[in-house]
Design a protein around this nucleic acid. Structure first.
Lengths: 114, 114
DNA sequence: TTGACATATCGATATATAGCTATAAATTGA
DNA sequence: TCAATTTATAGCTATATATCGATATGTCAA
């Protein structure tokens, strides 16, 4: 049923968990989605597109850069961010391909007729 | 370069972020990895395999069940947990397939010869 | 019903994270 | 140099999260 069952190393687990945790935030996920779709963007475009405060955007962007998820490039007064971790691109594409919102969400109180 | 650029809904973003955040923890990721490879397991097997405290395992298991990531089934004195969110399976498999640890890790101080 | 085992929960504490406001720093053009 | 624009950071508060030890709960068999 499973192809290969090579045990995941402690280091690999840590790295993967860190990456997942990093993208497991709605604002950061939206930023990544934006960059994945449209390529590198500067901070103003990002915070204006998402409708959030500049400082918030900057903080999340810096966080993701520190974690190695994003990279940045300055062009004059603008700083352009881009996805720098191919694993992130893979996971995002995976989510787009397979991860429609679940029909049955976190509330189990209402029986769905099963 | 991208196949389809359908905008991700606010709800979808929230759900995806919640799921990613939930699996973005080393212990929880290891539990999911174990269940993905070997199918449902009881709590004792899980905490013994990972070498963690019983209470810690139980807490993470309950957390993931509350978030809809895992489901559980009691058989006598044992409680068996299994992955209940197909999106999680997809992401984990994606990580296995594509996400070897990065060669160049979070330290940028040492140039890698590029 | 009691004991043994498996699992869940509680209470306390420590640490991490998110968001806000204000302000600093960098860059460019006038 | 000054003003305007863009981006980053500091200080703060509130909240969430992780872990630990102890204990409670559930289940079964004797």
């Amino acid at each position: 049923m499973k192809h290969m069952t090579q045990n995941i190393s402690a280091e690999a687990v840590q790295q993967a968990a860190n990456m997942l945790k990093c993208i497991g935030h709605p604002i950061r996920l939206q930023i990544i989605d934006l960059l994945d779709k449209n390529g590198e963007q500067n901070v103003t475009t990002i915070y204006a597109t998402l409708g959030i405060e500049q400082a918030i955007a900057s903080q999340h962007l810096n966080l993701m850069r520190d974690k190695g998820v994003l990279a940045s490039r300055r062009d004059g007064v603008n700083v352009y961010y881009r996805i720098d971790d191919p694993r992130v691109t893979r996971v995002i594409d995976c989510i787009h391909d397979h991860c429609q919102p679940k029909e049955r969400v976190l509330d189990r109180s209402t029986p769905t007729g099963r």
